[in-house]
Design a protein around this nucleic acid. Structure first.
Lengths: 207, 207
DNA sequence: TCAAAAAGTGAATGCTAGTTCACTATTTGG
DNA sequence: CCAAATAGTGAACTAGCATTCACTTTTTGA
């Protein structure tokens, strides 16, 4: 009869896999993608480099997973806000503010997610993750347009612009070369006002 | 007596240097930073790899130059618009539209400037270049606030948001993995409307 | 024309990780 | 307990490039 994993073994394998992802995530959050070498990940996870390749076919694959897992977490948080109570405007404000605040708290991870140099494969995954964030914002924009809180607009483009806007406003503060914010709340307020104004966009008051 | 460069020699050296930068730029615009290896740059410039190192101490230094040169060009164009005639709103619209249009025309160069994976040194330069773009937009925003076309706002943050917004809206269209725009003019319109609305930001009409 | 100085050459070097693979250890089903 | 199958090890291998350097060619100033 063929070899078949016992339940205990299945658990071990699953937990190894999670351990690898967690180890990679930890290393990224400590020192950026730069510091997250396969050897370091392996030793952090308590495995050998060879073992990693039983779980992930390549470094890029592993980090795509790490990225997606991190993004999943963020999206859960954002979705809660997006699907929560409040006007579209309020929800947009809160969503942007929440993202920016969290990014400032975990700059390495945020930088890795947003902008840190990596190999092209991982970068491609990053672009897709950004689009996933875009989806969240599309939902708010749509609901805002529906109830006339927001102007008519190209939802796809606006969502991308929002993601880009807060992302870029963060790059200075989170990039290792220029890191440091003086007034966190001020930045958060400015960025969320910008995004709200952009989608609300009632251009001339009383004409 | 010490060796001293004749005028002819000075010209040759200057033209070599320019040639190297031009070669690198050409390679980037053809195949992205990826394809722009030192050996390729050297052969495109009609020199040996060794010679490159008489002109630039490292690859990163060379590409910082390339980047800055490319950005200089763009900034000249933008400055013309910014310092030209028209309301702040019009100038902002034109500046954003012009940048986006040019980026779509030269996607490889734009991608290299905006987002392509590279070594950390070059990336740091890229961040600085983005900030240079930010400066251009700060000027428009300031003038718009001054004459009450635009709401009061954090100029630094808004400028970063604008750069981020059009940048991100471009990433999908210019990234090799997802390249392709259906309707260029639609995108341009959507992005510039977004930016204008964001800085104008009269939020409640007639309250 | 000549020797010192500088410019230019390009094959060889070196470095940095990612990846492999011959081998050992563990697990499985009987 | 045994043999087949799978999991895990980590030193060695590899590949891709940037960078160097011993050497050739050109330029300079007298």
């Amino acid at each position: 009869m063929a070899y078949q994993r016992s339940e205990r073994m299945q658990r071990r394998i699953a937990s190894n896999r999670e351990g690898i992802v967690a180890a990679a995530r930890l290393l990224v959050s400590k020192g950026g993608l730069r510091e997250a070498r396969m050897e370091a990940v392996a030793s952090e996870a308590g495995l050998s480099t060879g073992a990693l390749y039983r779980y992930f076919p390549s470094k890029a694959d592993l980090f795509v997973d790490v990225l997606n897992a991190a993004v999943d977490r963020e999206i859960v948080i954002l979705d809660e806000i997006v699907n929560g109570p409040g006007s579209a405007r309020e929800r947009l404000t809160d969503a942007v503010a929440s993202f920016v605040r969290r990014a400032l708290r975990g700059p390495n991870l945020a930088y890795a997610f947003i902008a840190e140099p990596t190999e092209a494969d991982v970068d491609a995954a990053r672009i897709l993750c950004r689009m996933r964030f875009g989806e969240v914002f599309k939902a708010i924009i749509r609901s805002g347009i529906e109830n006339s809180e927001f102007r008519a607009q190209d939802v796809d483009a606006s969502a991308a612009c929002i993601v880009g806007a807060f992302t870029e406003a963060l790059v200075g503060p989170i990039a290792p070369s220029t890191r440091g914010v003086e007034d966190e709340d001020r930045l958060i307020g400015a960025v969320s006002s910008f995004c709200v104004a952009a989608v609300v966009g009632v251009v001339m008051p009383c004409q």
